[in-house]
Structures are given as C-alpha cells and as structure tokens.
C-alpha cells in the first residue's frame, strides 16, 4: 500500500528567552493510506507540535514531511493550504468551530473552498450522518460540547480527506459522549478509508489504532512503525 504520510528526521526548535528549546528531535515514521496511528506521551512531549507539523500548520526547521506525495517543506503557505483542503481533515480538542458560522456553514467550508457545487446537500447529509440534521442552523455557542465535536467531525470528513488529524478529540467530553465520538471517528475512518493520526493521553483509545508512537522529551520513545522509526530507549 502507498504511504499517505511520510516524516523524515523532523526537528523543531522554539526560541524561549535566550535559549533554544528543542521540542521535536529527529522524528521519522511513515503511515500507510487508510491506517490509523496514535501519538501518545506526557504533556510537553511535543505531540501537538508533531501533529501541527505533519498537517502543515507550522514551519519545519529540519527534516521533511510529505502528505499524499506532497513535500510540505517545499511548498508555500498557500500551496500547503491547498494540500490541506484537498487531503486533510482536522478534529481539535476544543472543536475549533468558527463561532460566527452555523453548524451547516462550518461543515460547508472545506467543500466550498474546493468549489463543490453541491456543498449544501453534502454538508446537510454529513450532519444527518452525525445525528445533527435538526441542529444545522445553530451557532456553535448554542450547541453542547458533544454536539460541537460531532459538527467538527462532519466538517473534518466533508472534503473526503485522505488523512485525518485529531488532537485529543475526546479530551473535552464526558465518557459517554467521548465513546460516541470515538465510534464515529473510527467508523468514518473505516468506511471512507481515511488514514487517522490521533494525539491522545488516553492509552485505551490509543490501543484501538493500528500503530502507536510514544513521545518523550521531543523524541520517539517507543514505536511500532519500526521500519521508519529510530526507536530510542
């Protein structure tokens, strides 16, 4: 199978006062299309930074990332945006819905950016799929946390992405709602053949994915993606 995500010797350093803080150090791995991967680790281990770099939301210092064959480090910001629009879906811990748009409008955005003429119908169908057809004209502030995350899921899958990045998707939800979101996430992953990269503290959730990477201090501490990973002890 083809690789949807390839990470090679990826490093990221931030300036903290007068010191350079290495958040990620020489990370390498790759993920096959349609597979799922969990990134786990303690707070501050670089999980969200790694996810952001993989999705082209931050600038790469050294190393390379490629999504669906597009080397992100060689693309302009607009080109990266286009790669995201055509290939990537996102789910964030705090939902990140656009508060000034209704649930339906939020789901329509990726489709409209793609120039999809049937954006309205497709977004309505997706909201129906996540059980929110009757709440489509509500603003995020009028929805509960679980409902907001379901809208976020519908939006994440609306552009039929090849890969979905989820940052603590159940972190802000109660157990029951969290379980529902998890199910939705994996169902959609399976049904639509979308690769899934999941950042989580939840070991139980992590074990439901095909692969797992454990980060510690910006380095890969443990990984089952052995062929591409420099496992560190």
């Amino acid at each position: 199978m083809s690789q949807i995500l390839e990470v090679h010797k990826l490093s990221k350093t931030y300036q903290s006062g007068e010191k350079n803080l290495t958040v990620l150090d020489q990370i390498s791995f790759s993920l096959e299309a349609g597979k799922s991967l969990a990134i786990v680790g303690p707070s501050g281990s670089g999980k969200t930074t790694l996810l952001g770099l993989c999705a082209g939301l931050d600038r790469i210092d050294t190393g390379s990332v490629s999504i669906a064959g597009h080397a992100l480090d060689q693309l302009s910001e607009d080109q990266k945006a286009q790669v995201r629009n055509e290939n990537v879906g996102f789910v964030f811990q705090n939902f990140q819905l656009i508060p000034t748009l209704t649930a339906l409008e939020n789901v329509m955005i990726p489709l409209e950016l793609l120039g999809d003429k049937n954006a309205l119908q497709e977004a309505t169908a997706l909201l129906d799929q996540v059980g929110l057809a009757d709440r489509k004209n509500h603003y995020p502030s009028q929805l509960s946390g679980g409902e907001q995350q379901r809208v976020a899921l519908a939006r994440a899958f609306s552009n039929r992405p090849k890969i979905l990045f989820a940052d603590e998707p159940t972190g802000n939800l109660d157990e029951e709602t969290g379980a529902k979101i998890e199910k939705l996430l994996f169902d959609l992953n399976r049904d639509k053949g979308t690769a899934l990269v999941l950042v989580t503290h939840d070991i139980e959730l992590a074990h439901k994915t095909d692969h797992l990477i454990r980060l510690k201090g910006g380095k890969v501490f443990e990984s089952d993606l052995l062929s591409q990973t420099h496992a560190q002890s």
């Binding site: 629009n85 055509e86 990726p110 950016l113 793609l114």
Partner: peptide, 8 residues
C-alpha cells in the same frame, strides 16, 4: 481557522 481548513 479558514486557513487551517485550506483557505488561501
């Protein structure tokens, strides 16, 4: 957020 979702 629009940019994250792919807006140029």
């Amino acid at each position: 957020l629009l940019r994250t979702l792919g807006a140029k």
